[in-house]
Amino acid sequence: MGILTDSTHLHITTWVIALVLFLVAAFMDRNSKGRKITHMILRLFYVLVIITGLALFIEHSSFDAMQYGLKFLFGILTIGMMEMVLVRSKKQKPTTLFWGLFVVFLFVTMFFGFKLPVGINFLANL
């Protein structure tokens, strides 16, 4: 698992690309073929984010199992809200609640990610 767990670079790269793809898909015309293609590529990146995150979790959870577990849980919830926003907007159903939950879960996930020992410590004073 060396390439997956040596650093967080691969995991960060996958979730940044996933966020960009999500925002692109979310603001495309809901019936366009480009949105459907972008959404399918985004689903591939969901899998990559989960695989790289799971590898980091398995390798490093012994540092602080509770925080790593919470980060993993909120990461899965973030991906779930991304998918809910796209699917519900395609069906022309309200998405305001899911956008709000997405923002909250993303913030909590990033907070835990930056606070953990293996992550980049932007929040050194917190």
Results as ranks from 00 to 15, higher is better:
residue 4 L to A: 11
residue 6 D to L: 10
residue 7 S to A: 12
residue 8 T to E: 13
residue 8 T to G: 02
residue 11 H to G: 05
residue 13 T to V: 07
residue 15 W to Y: 12
residue 15 W to V: 09
residue 15 W to K: 07
residue 16 V to Q: 08
residue 16 V to Y: 09
residue 16 V to S: 03
residue 17 I to F: 07
residue 21 L to A: 00
residue 21 L to E: 01
residue 21 L to D: 00
residue 23 L to S: 12
residue 24 V to N: 05
residue 25 A to Q: 06
residue 25 A to F: 02
residue 27 F to M: 03
residue 27 F to A: 02
residue 28 M to N: 00
residue 28 M to I: 01
residue 29 D to G: 06
residue 29 D to F: 03
residue 30 R to H: 06
residue 31 N to D: 13
residue 32 S to N: 07
residue 34 G to P: 03
residue 34 G to E: 12
residue 35 R to V: 01
residue 36 K to M: 04
residue 36 K to R: 14
residue 37 I to S: 01
residue 37 I to V: 12
residue 37 I to P: 03
residue 38 T to Q: 04
residue 39 H to Q: 13
residue 42 L to M: 09
residue 43 R to A: 00
residue 44 L to G: 15
residue 45 F to P: 00
residue 46 Y to A: 02
residue 46 Y to R: 04
residue 47 V to W: 03
residue 47 V to P: 03
residue 48 L to Q: 02
residue 49 V to E: 01
residue 49 V to N: 02
residue 50 I to F: 01
residue 50 I to E: 00
residue 51 I to E: 01
residue 52 T to E: 01
residue 53 G to S: 03
residue 55 A to E: 14
residue 57 F to Q: 03
residue 58 I to D: 13
residue 58 I to P: 11
residue 58 I to G: 06
residue 58 I to A: 15
residue 59 E to K: 15
residue 59 E to R: 12
residue 60 H to G: 04
residue 61 S to W: 15
residue 64 D to P: 04
residue 64 D to F: 08
residue 65 A to N: 02
residue 66 M to N: 07
residue 67 Q to W: 14
residue 68 Y to C: 00
residue 68 Y to R: 00
residue 69 G to Q: 15
residue 70 L to N: 07
residue 72 F to M: 04
residue 73 L to P: 04
residue 74 F to T: 05
residue 75 G to D: 08
residue 75 G to F: 05
residue 76 I to E: 01
residue 77 L to F: 11
residue 78 T to D: 07
residue 78 T to I: 03
residue 78 T to A: 10
residue 78 T to G: 08
residue 78 T to S: 13
residue 79 I to G: 03
residue 80 G to H: 05
residue 80 G to L: 06
residue 82 M to H: 10
residue 82 M to S: 06
residue 83 E to D: 14
residue 84 M to P: 01
residue 84 M to W: 11
residue 85 V to F: 02
residue 85 V to I: 15
residue 87 V to Y: 10
residue 87 V to F: 01
residue 88 R to F: 02
residue 89 S to I: 09
residue 89 S to G: 11
residue 90 K to S: 09
residue 90 K to V: 07
residue 91 K to T: 11
residue 91 K to C: 09
residue 92 Q to P: 02
residue 93 K to V: 07
residue 94 P to Q: 08
residue 95 T to C: 13
residue 97 L to P: 08
residue 98 F to P: 08
residue 98 F to A: 04
residue 99 W to K: 14
residue 99 W to P: 08
residue 99 W to C: 09
residue 99 W to E: 10
residue 100 G to W: 13
residue 100 G to N: 06
residue 101 L to V: 03
residue 101 L to K: 09
residue 102 F to H: 13
residue 103 V to H: 14
residue 103 V to K: 14
residue 103 V to P: 10
residue 106 L to E: 06
residue 109 T to L: 09
residue 109 T to S: 12
residue 109 T to V: 09
residue 109 T to M: 12
residue 110 M to G: 09
residue 111 F to P: 00
residue 113 G to A: 15
residue 114 F to C: 11
residue 115 K to G: 13
residue 115 K to C: 11
residue 115 K to V: 12
residue 117 P to T: 14
residue 117 P to Q: 15
residue 118 V to N: 15
residue 119 G to K: 08
residue 120 I to H: 13
residue 120 I to T: 14
residue 122 F to I: 14
residue 122 F to P: 02
residue 124 A to P: 06
residue 125 N to W: 15
residue 125 N to A: 14
residue 125 N to G: 11
